[in-house]
Amino acid sequence: MTEETKPMRAPWGDIAPKLTEITDTILFDDVWRRPGLSARDRSMITVASLISLYRINELPFHLGKALENGVTRDEIVEMVTHLAFYAGWPTASTAIGLVRRTFAEADARSASVA
């Protein structure tokens, strides 16, 4: 199974099974797999939206998925830089801290696999 076809799954099945079910079947299986956009494009849109809306709880997960879906580190940093002027400086500042942490975690995972 490639990274692009690897299914995303909600992480709260232990406490909210119905929310998990509808998240997995509607959001991750239907919305994310529609043919109109690639997973990479959807990741870029999602990350930009989460940054703009200051959704810092969901951002780390989607930053990781963006990397898995082929969005480059340079592109992610450029999105944050661009959004600083549209979503606000504090929003971008918070996002870049989460980006740094996500990159470090990805590096640590790569090092442990190598």
Rank of each mutant, 00 (worst) to 15 (best):
A48R: 06
A114S: 13
L19P: 01
A104W: 00
E4L: 14
E78N: 10
G70Y: 04
R33D: 13
H62F: 09
M79P: 11
V77I: 05
S49M: 15
T5N: 14
S43I: 04
G97C: 10
F61K: 01
T5C: 02
D24M: 05
L59S: 03
P11E: 13
D29I: 09
I15M: 13
F85Q: 08
L50T: 01
L53R: 14
I15K: 08
F61D: 00
G88D: 03
V113K: 14
A39P: 08
F103S: 03
T102P: 04
D14S: 13
G88H: 09
P60F: 05
K65I: 09
D30S: 15
E78Y: 09
I22N: 03
S112M: 13
D107V: 06
T5W: 12
M79A: 10
E58T: 01
N57W: 00
K65F: 12
A10T: 08
A16V: 11
V80F: 03
P90M: 07
P35E: 05
V71Q: 02
I96C: 06
P7R: 08
A114I: 06
A10P: 11
A48H: 07
R40G: 02
M8W: 12
A108K: 11
S38A: 07
I15W: 01
D30P: 11
I22S: 10
E3L: 15
A10H: 15
G97P: 00
V71T: 10
R42P: 11
Y54R: 14
I76V: 09
T20L: 05
E4W: 13
I26D: 15
L19Y: 15
G64R: 03
V99T: 06
E78F: 14
L37G: 03
I26H: 15
G13T: 03
W32M: 01
E4K: 14
L83D: 02
R33N: 10
S43N: 03
P7I: 08
T5M: 10
T81C: 11
E75V: 12
A39D: 09
L63V: 02
G64I: 00
V31I: 12
W32N: 04
L19H: 13
T23S: 14
V99M: 03
D107G: 03
I45C: 09
I76C: 06
E58D: 08
A66M: 04
T2A: 12
P60A: 02
R40H: 14
T46F: 05
G97K: 10
F61Q: 00
G13D: 09
P90N: 07
F103I: 11
R109W: 04
L67N: 05
I56E: 12
A87K: 12
E68R: 14
S110P: 00
T23R: 01
H62K: 10
E105G: 03
L59M: 05
V31N: 09
I45V: 15
I26L: 15
L63I: 12
E78K: 12
V113P: 02
E58N: 04
N57E: 14
H82G: 07
A84R: 07
A92Y: 02
E75S: 08
S112H: 11
S49K: 12
R34T: 03
K18I: 11
N69R: 05
T94W: 09
T72L: 08
A66C: 01
L27T: 14
E3R: 14
R55Q: 02
A66P: 01
D41W: 02
T20S: 08
V99S: 01
L37S: 07
M8K: 00
R73G: 05
S112Q: 14
V31K: 10
M8N: 00
I76M: 12
P17K: 02
R55W: 04
A111D: 11
